[in-house]
Simulated scan of single mutants.
Amino acid sequence: MKALKFLVAFVIVAILMFSFWIYRSLHSPHAHNKNKQYIQIPHGSSPGQILIKLTSEGIISSEIPLKVYLKITGTGNKMQAGEYLFNSPITPLEVLGELNKGKLRTVKFTVPEGFTRFDIAKRITEQFPQNQPTGENGVLNLMDDVSLIKDIAPKAKNLEGYMYPNTYEFPRSVTTQAIIDKMVAEFKKVWKPEYTARALKLNMTPHQVITIASLIETESRLDTERPVIASVIYNRLKKGMPLGIDQTAVYIAKMENRWDGVINRSDLESDSPYNTRKVVGLPPGPISSISESSIKAALHPASTNYIYYVLNVEKNDKSHKFYATATAFERGKAAYQAWLQKERR
């Protein structure tokens, strides 16, 4: 009888001591040397596998306290895959709290206004090289899939102009398709149904308006000036004049993989349908990503009789001077060229 009482007492003491050890272990900060390193918890990891991973990395000293805690509370399924930075020292319960939040290590991905699909493809391969085994050409091939914009531009040949310029955050493991899908989705948030209705009032398709917006985007950095740039484009279209926008020559060079940072005479003499110096009317499609400011300017051009413009050398704000006659334009152009030669000396 005494032996049984002793055994029961021993078991109770052992349980109490074990419980105290579990409690103390769960609340005691543990120091480790991985506080500046991301610890990756892969998708599909079981609670046991996660605890083994944390122990092997030194984030916790023993998996037993958390294993017991998860068994009692039944909260093991709350732990999420992700990439984690754990402070040091840190208690096991604090570790569990982080795992319950779920964290993905993200990369900021910025597409500036005016970027072409070629620029975007290059940036994707630079920032996510491990995810792009086919390189820039593979990315560009994905941009030829226009199924995402059939409702807006059924005749578009690629996604140029339909990938919205913005700063995005993606997990490091993001796929190229997911990046493209996100940028197109962002564009479709910006392109409102009333924009389509307004385009029809201008006797334009949405694709034509988006093409004009891309021309505006490449020609002016000033929101206040863009409706005036738009008026020049529309006035030239009405008069049957070539638009003469040299940025289309840049686009041609990028399409042909020969852009070297300088517009050459051969670029301006190209027979490409994108060459707005030679071809009357709009190019076949947009030549850059576009901001909502340029979209609004294309939909609501200023009412002017301007058909020319040149950089305003009297100001250092990237603005332009506008002209209604060739004579006035030639004087402005001469002043600009004289200034340009002086700057190059």
Rank of each mutant, 00 (worst) to 15 (best):
A3H: 09
L4Q: 13
L7V: 14
A14M: 04
A14L: 15
L16D: 13
F18I: 05
F18C: 09
L26F: 03
A31Q: 11
N35D: 10
Q49E: 14
L54H: 10
S56Y: 04
G58L: 08
S61M: 06
S62Y: 05
I64Y: 10
L66P: 10
L70N: 08
I72P: 00
I72C: 06
K78F: 11
M79Q: 11
L85N: 11
L85P: 12
T91P: 03
V95Q: 08
L96P: 02
L99V: 02
K101E: 11
K103V: 11
T106K: 12
F109I: 12
F115H: 07
F118G: 02
I120R: 06
I120H: 04
A121F: 01
A121N: 06
R123A: 14
T125F: 12
F128G: 10
Q130N: 14
N131L: 13
T134S: 13
G135A: 02
G135N: 03
L140R: 06
V146H: 06
V146Q: 05
S147T: 06
L148A: 12
I149L: 07
I149D: 05
K150C: 04
I152H: 01
I152E: 05
P154N: 09
K155I: 02
N158K: 07
L159I: 04
E160P: 10
E160A: 12
Y162K: 06
Y162T: 03
Y168D: 03
E169H: 14
P171M: 14
S173C: 12
Q177I: 02
Q177V: 09
A178H: 14
I180H: 02
D181K: 10
K182C: 00
E186G: 05
Y195H: 11
A199C: 00
L202Y: 08
M204E: 11
L215T: 07
L215W: 10
T218S: 10
L222S: 05
L222K: 08
E225W: 01
P227T: 02
G240I: 09
P242C: 04
P242T: 07
L243R: 09
G244S: 08
Q247H: 13
A249P: 00
V250L: 00
K254I: 00
S266D: 13
S270G: 09
S272W: 13
N275L: 08
K278F: 01
V279G: 02
V279L: 06
G281D: 06
P283R: 09
I287T: 03
E292V: 14
I295C: 14
H300G: 01
P301H: 04
Y309G: 00
V310E: 05
V310W: 03
L311T: 15
V313M: 10
D317T: 07
F322T: 00
A324W: 04
A334S: 15
Y336A: 11
A338M: 13
Q341V: 07
K342G: 11
E343N: 14
E343R: 15
R344T: 13
